[in-house]
Amino acid sequence: MESNIPAFLLTEEPRDRFSGDAGKTRFSFIERTIAGTANSLRILYLQAESAGNSSFIARLNPVTKVLAFVYLILVISFVHSLKSQVSTSGFLAVAFLFSGLNMARVYRQILLISFLFGFLLAAPAALNVVTPGDILVSIISLGEPHDFWIYHVPARIGITLEGCNIVARIFMRVFNSVSLSFLLVYSTSFPRLLKAFRIFFIPDTLLMVFWLAYKYIFILCRTVEETYLALKSRMIRNIRNETLRGIAAGRILYLYEKSQINYEQTYAAMISRGYAGKIILAGENKMTVKDLLILLCTALLGAAILIL
């Protein structure tokens, strides 16, 4: 067989080429960035996957779920008593049981978000500087009270019972709102969820824009992850940060160009399939007696929570 392949390919690389390399590999900032992006992809993907399962909640008509969601969010916002908020949490926990989701994983996410936006942000309200009342735990003593402009700082600063009550209520409100949102999102596939929003007279064209944006984020995440693997496979020695930055910039340009091509091709595909300025989406399945019963139960439950 006549060969025209380069001579160097027919030889072996020196065996001791890497013998001097020691220590740890350094590929951190790209690794971390891509790992974070891949994680976003994973969350999106898991949402789509779990929503496709055959649990009781997943099988409900998305319109039912969206209506129940809006109603319960309003109930959670109006309810002031801690007892009612705790009852709502109990009800949502039961609903999660029927959703077939991994409760430990979902509740970990809910607790993290609730802690950040429900507890940390509201924590100062527990102090008597913000919420006057009987001090439960004293934190600092200033000797004498101070007044400036409209503010009054008491001599002894501490945590009050009234303050704790307010923080607990805010935390529970955030916790329940996040739980309800997660229940809806994790139990309904994104396309079905979008279609359900037609009940609020959102135009199909806008829903299509949302759907394309969602789909594109998914494609983008996959492209980023695949690009990263290709890059990783050719990263041999530690390379200089400016080279890495150059590569990253090149990849960003590539992704931008890819986005533009995708956008143009998607638009061309829409035109070729009859798009003439107005999008008409297929409707969702009709609501069944089961859906109406669920709505009725939710309405009664919301009323009971409001009365508590």
């Binding site: 690389e13 080429r17 890497f18 013998s19 390399d21 020691a22 220590g23 740890k24 590999t25 492209t223 695949e226 690009t227 693997l229 290709a230 890059l231 496979s233 050719r234 990263m235 041999i236 020695r237 530690n238 150059g246 590569i247 090149g250 990849r251 590539y254 890819k258």
Partner: peptide
Amino acid sequence: SLGNKNIHNRLRGSMGYIFQNPDIQLFCP
């Protein structure tokens, strides 16, 4: 083990991987 520079470089240096999609593989100007 791939955190060890020697193992990492030996593996990467001795394996060439041609991906199915060339778009993702090319990253230089």
